[in-house]
């Protein structure tokens, strides 16, 4: 029996079919490497349009801040550097745990994936918790743009514009984090069930790319929103 199997294996070229194909390899890909390359490139194409999406807000920020530097500086002074700084550390730490989750996937360690994803979700939760505290301060101080906005100093309309951009940019950033955490929760369950292998972990790598992108957006938001004119000039 073994000899006939060996003979047929030697005599016929390997033709992939539904039985012999490895689980998780889509039929239109020749190999896991090709499938992974397509997934990785596809995720980057998505992130490139995300760069343009956030880019519009950064552009609005540059235009208004250049036109009204004093108003933007006084608005920025109302933000809490300590809370913003802690959140920067927390978010970069979550990028580290996310990178380690992808590393665990590359090594084929399902439990490692689950642990590092849970840590990433927890750090994301800490970030959003601190953001909630900051938002509620702004609400009580009447610094939320709209009919209840109050500003005693000069140029209230453009200070309000600073807070408009602050809430639009950090709000959109926070929304991205909520989406990322929801995706991570699903992936953690699948990883727990052993859905990912050394060869097939595109979902984890893809969501990892997304999470790091959200981290990069914050890396720019923190100095641009929190650290204006702190040198006393």
């Amino acid at each position: 029996m073994s000899t006939s199997a060996e003979a047929s294996r030697a005599g016929t070229p390997e033709i992939p079919d539904s039985k012999s194909r490895a689980w998780g390899l889509a039929h239109h890909f020749e190999s896991f490497a090709q499938q992974q390359e397509a997934s990785y490139l596809g995720m980057w194409l998505f992130l490139v349009q995300e760069i343009m999406f956030f880019g519009g807000l950064f552009l609005a920020y540059i235009v208004y801040r250049t036109g009204h530097p004093e108003a933007f500086t006084s608005g920025s002074h109302e933000l809490d550097i300590t809370l913003g700084g802690i959140n920067t550390v927390v978010l970069i730490a979550s990028s580290l745990t996310m990178a380690l989750a992808v590393w665990a996937a590359q090594k084929g360690r399902s439990k490692g994936i689950v642990v590092f994803i849970i840590l990433t979700i927890l750090l994301g939760g800490v970030f959003l918790g601190i953001k909630t505290v900051e938002y509620s301060h702004k609400w009580h101080e009447h610094h939320v743009p709209g009919p209840h906005f109050e500003w005693d100093g000069p140029d209230a309309p453009h200070v309000q514009m600073f807070f408009n951009l602050y809430f639009a940019m950090t709000g959109l950033h926070a929304l991205h984090m909520v989406v990322g955490m929801a995706l991570l929760a699903v992936i953690a369950v699948w990883a727990w069930r052993g859905a990912f292998t050394k060869e097939n972990h595109n979902l984890i790598e893809g969501i990892g790319l997304y999470w790091h992108f959200v981290d990069i957006v914050w890396i720019f938001l923190f100095p641009l929103l929190y650290l204006l004119g702190r040198n006393g000039v």
């Binding site: 990178a99 990892g208 890396i219």
Partner: peptide, 12 residues
């Protein structure tokens, strides 16, 4: 610089 480090290393 920070973004470049994240893109090159964390994002592979």
């Amino acid at each position: 610089t920070k973004a470049t480090l994240v893109v090159l290393i964390f994002m592979h």
